[in-house]
């Protein structure tokens, strides 16, 4: 069988596009050519933000997306898309594959008639590019920043004015002062759109997105029409591309950081005071979400247990 997969990313996008290519390659190899994945870049078949709807209605058989795109209508998607102060990629991996995470999210996707497979994990992103230095919480007041999702709502609480700027205009808007700060993607991706030429200060840590998942989705009918062997082959390929992204994400970022640093970028860390304020605001936003959506509540409780367990284990094993 040949399965069309509509991506929310450009086909050749660094890392984020490579993850899908890796998955497609594994599927074809494992199934000995029985299953072929045909990749369609963002906008080729459907606009990025309509990919899930298209898979849900069966207009395309499969999709590849950053799960956080669907946070507006599937609150639980925000948990694995971009959870501020959330788990590290390794802990997220444990939870989603072995800790029941996949099953909880599948509950939300069942209503959409969509099969959810977490096949790509993305390392923490930096906090973003800032035109001026951030020394205190007051520096955030009135700051115009391109950022979305739960983090956008968190920042609103500390006085930032989140701005909606389409991907193609981010560079110009930041360079020319329409916005003061922007969060886009991983360092190597930010470098391709030259954000290092638009702003000087590159802030860490990526509190807004310590880890995130890109998923492969299938229309449920397409998925159910596959035989058991084919389903196993796809799931195995998915595990394989997950591991590939877990182990291939960071080195590229370090190289990109080095190049940008040599080009004059200041790599800075948000002060603890600012992080504390953000952590407090995040707790408020999460409390609101837990109240709004029972599934988000269930998933958050389950994920929290995992994070606490992982923290305990880490401190027990710490040799420092």
């Amino acid at each position: 069988v040949e399965i069309d997969v509509a991506s929310t990313f450009p086909k050749d996008m660094m890392f984020l596009g490579d993850g899908l290519k890796q998955f497609a390659k594994s599927v074809e190899e494992i199934s000995d050519g029985d299953i072929k994945i045909k990749i369609h870049g963002a906008g080729d078949l459907v606009p990025a933000l309509e990919v899930l709807n298209a898979v849900s209605s069966g207009a395309v058989s499969g999709g590849y997306d950053w799960v956080g795109y669907w946070g507006g209508s599937i609150p639980v998607a925000n948990l694995v898309g971009a959870l501020p102060f959330g788990p590290s990629p390794e802990v997220l991996a444990e939870w989603i594959w072995e800790g029941g995470g996949m099953q909880i999210i599948q509950k939300a996707y069942d209503k959409r008639n969509v099969k959810f497979l977490p096949c790509v994990v993305v390392p923490a992103e930096p906090a973003g590019w800032f035109n001026k230095e951030i020394k205190t919480v007051e520096d955030l007041q009135g700051l115009k920043m391109r950022i979305g999702g739960l983090a956008g709502r968190v920042l609103t609480k500390v006085g930032v004015s989140p701005q909606m700027i389409p991907g193609g205009e981010v560079f110009v808007s930041l360079e020319r002062g329409r916005i003061d700060a922007a969060e886009f993607s991983l360092p190597a991706v930010d470098e391709t759109i030259q954000l290092n030429k638009a702003a000087k200060n590159y802030y860490f840590p990526g509190w807004h997105q310590p880890s995130s998942i890109n998923s492969i989705t299938f229309n449920m009918k397409v998925w159910n029409d596959l035989n058991d062997l084919q389903k196993h082959q796809i799931t195995t390929a998915c595990r394989s591309s997950f591991l590939w992204t877990l182990t291939n994400g960071v080195p590229q970022q370090l190289e990109a950081l080095k190049r940008m640093e040599e080009g004059g970028t200041s790599i800075l860390r948000l002060p603890d005071e600012v992080l504390d304020a953000l952590r407090k605001a995040t707790a408020e936003v999460i409390a609101e979400e837990r109240q709004k959506d029972p599934l988000f509540d269930e998933a958050y409780a389950s994920l929290s247990t995992y994070i606490e367990g992982a923290d305990r284990w880490k401190s027990l094993q710490s040799t420092k």
Partner: peptide
Amino acid sequence: LPSFALITSRIFGAVLENWI
């Protein structure tokens, strides 16, 4: 024929939802 749903979502995403 259900592929027409793609046309629908493209009209929405590429024309109507397009702030440029």
